[in-house]
Design a protein around this nucleic acid. Structure first.
Lengths: 340, 340
DNA sequence: GTGAAAGCGCTAACAG
DNA sequence: CTGTTAGCGCTTTCAC
């Protein structure tokens, strides 16, 4: 092939040669353009353009020690709520000129650890993980690589890592309080798998501690709309029927509502339904879902800021507690025959 | 600080020194362990462990020329369907020992191009993009960097890039055919923004070409559940009311159904509703949604394979057409007063 | 304002 | 089986 038909990508030396300057000068126009004479800079820019040169990130990283990306480990992408955290995260990281590498763990601590290793191998400057249930190996990996890592979706200032999230126990209690205030006493609590999910466990623990006079029946189902349907079928079969469904995730609530409609049970009259999360869809449901609004995308943004500043300043950020709030819509009301 | 209190991460040379071997040997236990004597390997492993050494990905990349990650550009993560493509993608890429860097574009070709640049700058070995609507700059960028890039969610063997997806026009026609077969003639077609979305445009074009005797009214709304609600309010206000709603995305269909319930219009008797996508939730809705099943997560897997083999073999993969299929559930039936 | 040269941490011939 | 050595593409002193 002719000398002009290069197969390989041009490199900095090629550019320097083409512009008739040294490699140092080319590097300068990249990193501190103002220190280079106008004319020289133009010649270099011209050479860069004509050679269509794109600097090698790896070479840059090896010298500057910065890869400019962080990794996020999420249980799944099939689930709206994590996708929304990532959306907030990605958007804010982009502002800090950082990229986001996503890895899914299927909620398995082993997979999580191995994916974390992979992320570190490819040079992640920081990690975002979900919640507090992780393999011991992951902690030691994080510790020995001294990798900035923040945990989201939970808040615990005493945790080994900075946490950025809300108080899951209190959020669940706020939901219960709303139902109790309306007069509900027999409540079925629907929740996703407790295994490897400290957020769900925290919500359940909060409820158990604050149950008051309420008769709570817990029901574990897959965390999906279908899971919500399944749960309702169980609830309806039980002897002393609940007057309200407290769903620890909005997806479950949506599924529950669909099944309730299917069974011809009108809401909220014959059954109140309440969720936690406040997904965008929840306001559109019929009836519109009463739920606890969790600031997930804001949480993503805060996590991005925390990890970005940690990476830049090398100072561990503080944990951050985000507030939640009750959003009363049409899916809850007083029970038909108020008890007591 | 004492000599044992190193601040910096250990490097390969440190390990070699500690193990009393050469750097090449250490490199070997990493990349081809079987070529190293058992005993030597153990000494090296021991040194690695005690120094808590993690090889530098950047240095590795600069030598091997491989960064082992690809980038995906998606319009948004707030939307279930893209998240599911990514899930399939990520999972399969992981099998090929490749990581996934995600960037969102908000459906804006300019943002897409700049994020693509960013991805290339950090060393992406390949790119996954959605559909065929992109800025001219993006094509030239891809071309001059010779970056393996595949387009998903569409199929067009004549496109500049390999496409992996389904025939959007035919998928929409299949939906229409189902409705027409049931006897519907006045159909409202709900769809998301056409701008920068060739998938939506292709579906609309297919419908327009195959409308037959059907009276189709098109309605553009935001691509969300709320958008579906909004659309229904419009439809109900129009003079000659449609007997069926053809929603070009399941999210729209879900929103439409919620609004229809709110308005007390029973489905499918007074209004048939049909979607396209077949989201996991669609089967749970009440009534369960009749829709066109699109194999999104399989598409993600195929895209992963395509890009992975392109990266590895340097041979451009062929476009791939995936099939779709009609899933008849409870949301469609014959119109009340069959017309002609 | 610019250039020469010394690395960054690793891989990959090539010897031995 | 193991060591020596020459880079990979870039950044960064340190001179001039």
């Amino acid at each position: 092939m002719g000398k002009s038909g290069h197969r390989k990508r041009a490199n900095l030396r090629d550019v320097a040669t083409a512009a008739g300057v040294s490699v140092a000068t080319v590097s300068r126009v990249l990193n501190s353009p103002h220190t280079v004479a106008e004319q020289t800079r133009e010649r270099v820019d011209e050479a860069i353009r004509s050679l269509q040169w794109v600097p090698s990130a790896a070479a840059r990283a090896i010298n500057s020690g910065r890869t400019r990306f962080v990794g996020a480990l999420v249980p799944t992408l099939d689930h709206d709520i994590f996708a929304r955290v990532l959306a907030g995260l990605e958007r804010q990281l982009a502002c800090r000129r950082l990229s986001l590498v996503v890895a899914t763990t299927d909620g398995d601590p082993q997979i999580e650890t191995s994916k974390a290793k992979g992320l570190i191998d490819i040079g992640a400057e920081g990690l975002i993980i979900s919640g507090k249930s992780h393999a011991a190996d992951l902690y030691s990996l994080i510790e020995r690589t001294r990798l900035p890592t923040v945990a989201t979706s939970c808040y615990d200032p005493d945790y080994a890592l900075p946490t950025i999230g809300y108080d899951n126990a209190r959020a669940a209690c706020a939901a219960l309080a709303h139902l109790a205030e309306l007069g509900h006493r027999r409540i079925a609590v629907l929740h996703g798998p407790k295994a490897n999910n400290d957020r769900t466990r925290a919500r359940i623990a909060g409820l158990t501690a604050q149950r008051g006079e309420c008769d709570l029946t817990f029901l574990e189902v897959p965390l999906s709309t279908a899971g919500g349907c399944e749960a309702v079928r169980h609830v309806l079969k039980s002897a002393r029927q609940a007057t309200a469904l407290l769903c620890l995730s909005d997806v479950l609530a949506a599924g529950a509502m669909f099944e309730l409609q299917r069974q011809g049970i009108t809401m909220p009259e014959r059954m109140s339904v309440m969720g936690i999360d406040d997904l965008p869809d929840s306001a559109c449901l019929y009836p519109a879902l009463t739920t606890i609004h969790l600031p997930v995308s804001r949480m993503g943004r805060h996590a991005a800021d925390a990890i970005a500043s940690w990476v830049e300043t090398e100072e561990e950020p503080a944990s951050l507690l985000l507030d939640f709030n009750l959003v009363v819509r049409g899916s809850t009301t007083r029970p038909r025959e108020p008890e007591t």
